[in-house]
Structure formats: C-alpha cells, structure tokens
Design a protein around this nucleic acid. Structure first.
Lengths: 180, 180
DNA sequence: CGTTCATAATTGAACGATCATTCATTCAAG
DNA sequence: CTTGAATGAATGATCGTTCAATTATGAACG
C-alpha cells in the first residue's frame, strides 16, 4: 500500500490555489503549508525551494491538462472535429477548476517561465500539435498554440462564462485563425 | 519653466523596466529608485505605494500604446487595411521597447489587474474598438481583443522576431479570427 | 543685482513586518 | 532499534515604508 496521504501532492495543490488567487508574490510558503495541512518545514522535505515547488506544480498541471485535452479524440477524424474536441476538452477541464487556469497563465508570464518549460516533458497535446502542424498555418508552434488553444485557457482563467452559442463562435474563430 | 527633470516619470520608467525583467515580486522599490537615479524616499513623494506606482505606470504605458495604435489610421478606409495598420502600429511600438510589452502582460495577469483597469481612462484604441465592434464577430470585446491585437502584444513580449512574411501571415490569422 | 527666507522637494538611514529557509527534535513504521 | 518523514520555532535576509534632516527653489525686498 502506498502512503496514506501524499503530502507532496497536497503541497502542490495548495500552491496552485494560492498562486491562482494571490500571485506568485502573494503566495507565501507558510500559507502553502497551512492550506496543505502540513508544517512549514514539510514543504522543504519534498521540494528544495519555492521555485522548485512552483515548477513541479506547473509540470503536473500542464501534463494533466495535456492528457485531458486528447481524451476521446479520434486522430483519424476530420481535423475540424478533432480541433473542436480538443478545445472543448481543455476548456471544460479548466472551467471545472479555474485555479488551474489562473495558475498556468501566471507562471507562463513570470520570470519562471523558461525553467518551467524546460522541466516539461512531452505530453499528448504537444505531440498531437506537432503531428498536425503541417495542416495548419505555417507559423511557429507556440504562436499557433497562442491563437488556437490558449484562448480557452485564458477564458477559463478570466472566470467569464460563455453561453453555448458564444462558445461555438469562439471555437470557430480560433479554428479560422490557424487555417493555412 | 517646468521641472528640469521629471522624477516621477523616471520612477515610472524604472518600474516598467524592472517589472519586465524580474516580475512584480522581483522588482524592489530600492532597485526602482536606484535605476531611476533618485533616493528610495523620493518614490513615495510621488506615489503612495508600490501598487500605486505600478498602476500609474500601467496607465501611462497602456495610454501611450493606445495613441500609437491609431497613429495614421484612416477610419474611413477598408476595415482590413485599418486593422493591419493598427496591428502593425502596436507591434512596432512594443518591439521598439519590449520592456513595455513584458510589463503589460505581467500586470494584466497579476492580482493588480482589476485596479489597473479601473484606473484606465478611455484611450483611442478602446474607442475605435467599440466603434468597429458591429463589423466583427459577435463576441465580448475583451475576447475580440484577445484574438486580434493581444497576439501582437504577446509576440513583442516574447522577444521572438518574426520575418516580414510570418508577420503578414500572423496579421491575416488574427484578422480571420475576428471575422463575423 | 545680491540677499533673505518660507516653502517644497529630496534624501537615505532606520524600522517593523514578513519572507524563504533551516535544523534540532519528535514521531511513526517496520 | 533503526530510519526516514514530519515538525515548527528560530534565523538571517530583505522587503515596503517612514521621517527627521538636508538641500534646492524662487518670490520679495532693498
């Protein structure tokens, strides 16, 4: 049997919530420990530093998002349909837990961005994106991502709720953007 | 005659540079004062707090960007041409001083976002956007902005340089996205 | 023009608060 | 008993902010 409580996971979850609400600056390590229900020192048993912890949490959030994104996707299907499914997967995943989205956008514009991306292993969404690259507009991959899937992340982070009709409009807009 | 040196402006410029490089957290008030060439106390003569200063700098940067955006735009011209001019204006303005772009994206995802936007008066770009809204895809204005002009801001912030061909491709992609 | 003087601007050392991090000690499991 | 996880008070560093002291400014005056 595994450990009864995975304290490292509790700590990662706590830092996600606190960074989402107060920013990287505003989230203190004692708050993180308190929310996680552990002592301040425990954090440092699992992570060397606050930076380390945030990067580990980023990797976890981004990886699980990548897996959620490709859930139930038929790679042999119509590109437009594949895109819509992935987009909705991302949006639903993050809207059900907006702290994830807010955490992601904060880390991605912070000075930790580079190290966070370096720590990232390849996940299903990236792999799929590289596979589809040839069929989309011929721009660098991160720009294509910024035009197509990232809007779903930012929308979830903003907390705004879109009706079904507007959501459909937005997905179409993102799809148009990345057409060749 | 006015003051020989506008120290408040020096301080705003310094906080923009330091937030761009080190983040809101990493930019300290003593660093700001040092870069601005004033004493630490001088900062507090012009701004009540660090937060106040960042918001004032945000308002200045955003306002000057708004004016640069509409420079030389013929409102009676073809919408597609108006859009391209505005997009290029924004991109050129920020690429010539990438610290502005990095500062903007950092503040806009931080917890200061709300107060920063509240402090913002209407500037030419917002006014124009509201005027053109009827001709674009029927989505909330901030989403339309996120799909059309914000990519130019994020591109400038990333520091990546796009060739003329890729720039044209990207402008077209942004334009496609916001079509009705 | 030089001098005076009230006012405002500027200074930077100092302050209290708070941060990330440490480590001697305790606890729990096998 | 042994070993590694967990604890939380303590530490040193650094933060934003303050304020008594200093310097610069320019209007008033002879």
């Amino acid at each position: 049997m595994t450990t009864r409580v995975d304290r490292a996971a509790l700590v990662r979850r706590a830092v996600v919530e606190l960074v989402a609400e107060y920013g990287i600056h505003g989230a203190t390590m004692s708050q993180v420990a308190e929310v996680a229900g552990v002592a301040t020192g425990t954090t440092y048993v699992h992570y060397q530093s606050k930076e380390d912890l945030i990067i580990a949490a980023f990797v976890e959030v981004k990886t699980s998002l990548g897996h959620a994104a490709v859930d139930g996707v038929d790679l042999a299907g119509e590109p437009r349909q594949v895109f819509e499914t992935v987009w909705r997967n991302v949006y639903v995943h993050l809207r059900s837990d907006p702290a994830l989205a807010r955490f992601l956008v904060q880390v991605e514009v912070s000075p930790l961005r580079q190290s966070a991306h370096d720590a990232l292993a390849e996940e299903p969404l990236t792999a799929m994106a590289q596979g589809l690259a040839g069929q989309l507009v011929d721009l660098p991959l991160d720009i294509v991502y910024d035009l197509s899937i990232a809007p779903a992340v930012r929308l979830a982070a903003s907390g705004a709720r879109l009706g079904p009709n507007d959501t459909e409009l937005l997905i179409e807009a993102c799809w148009r953007a990345v057409q060749p």
